[in-house]
Structures are given as structure tokens and as C-alpha cells.
């Protein structure tokens, strides 16, 4: 099974440059790992002001469990994507992204 590796940091650079671009096949493979996480504890955004502000949260994992707000707020979806990508990169590779 494919594992995300810090040696592939160029893929993180590609994502950071344009979180909503068309990812290369290699980057898409990283994103499949990151975005395919189980529901419990999965990062989501909560729309706090439509088209203006989003709050970071995680899912409870079962229907009926409220989302848990984590404190961070973003005024752009790109910034939110970058933030979560950094968190996940650390989780899967053990390395911080500069």
C-alpha cells in the first residue's frame, strides 16, 4: 500500500502553490490518502459566514454527533486547505512542512 513519504516533499510544494489546481497524478495519490481518512476525527470546515469565513472542525464519526470546533478560522478556502494539508503531512510523514 502506498505511504506518503517526506522524500516526496515536492508534492507538498505543488499543493501549497495551488490547493485547487489540477494535481499531478503523484499529488492526487497523496490526496487520496489524506482525504480518505475515516469519518471519526476527520477534518471538516464549518461555514460560519457564507463565502467569507470558515471554521476548522472535526467530525464525531456517527450521525447525531455534533462537529467539534477546533478554534482555527479561515477567510479563504485555500488557506484552510493548506492548513489541513500541513497537519496531515505531519501525521503521515512525521515531518513538518516549512
Amino acid at each position: 500500500m502506498y505511504r506518503v513519504n517526506h522524500n516526496e516533499k515536492h508534492l507538498a510544494d505543488e499543493f501549497m502553490a495551488n490547493p485547487f489546481g489540477r494535481p499531478s497524478p503523484e499529488l492526487q495519490r497523496v490526496l487520496i490518502v489524506f482525504r480518505g481518512e475515516p469519518v471519526a476525527g476527520k477534518y471538516v470546515l464549518v461555514c460560519t459566514k457564507p463565502f467569507k469565513e470558515w471554521a476548522l472542525a472535526e467530525l464525531g464519526g456517527k450521525r447525531g454527533e455534533p462537529v467539534k470546533l477546533l478554534g482555527e478560522r479561515f477567510t479563504s478556502l485555500e488557506e484552510a486547505e493548506r492548513y489541513v494539508f500541513r497537519k496531515r503531512w505531519k501525521k503521515y510523514t512525521g515531518h513538518d512542512l516549512a
Binding site: P19, F20, L31, I32, R35, G36, E37, P38, V39, K42, Y43, V44, L45, V46, C47, W54, A57, L59, G60, K62, R63, E65, P66, V67, L77, A80, E81, V84
Partner: peptide, 22 residues
């Protein structure tokens, strides 16, 4: 969106939970 891990894969970006969904 609250129960399917596939939601973020389908959207290919972070899920944005809406007030109606909450």
C-alpha cells in the same frame, strides 16, 4: 457528509459543513 468518509474524496477538497447540515 457526517457519516461517509467518501464525501471528501468525492469533493476532492475539504467538506464545508453547512448550517442546514448541522
Amino acid at each position: 457528509t457526517f457519516t461517509a468518509s467518501a464525501a471528501e474524496l468525492l469533493a476532492n477538497r475539504l467538506i464545508v459543513v453547512q448550517p442546514w447540515e448541522e
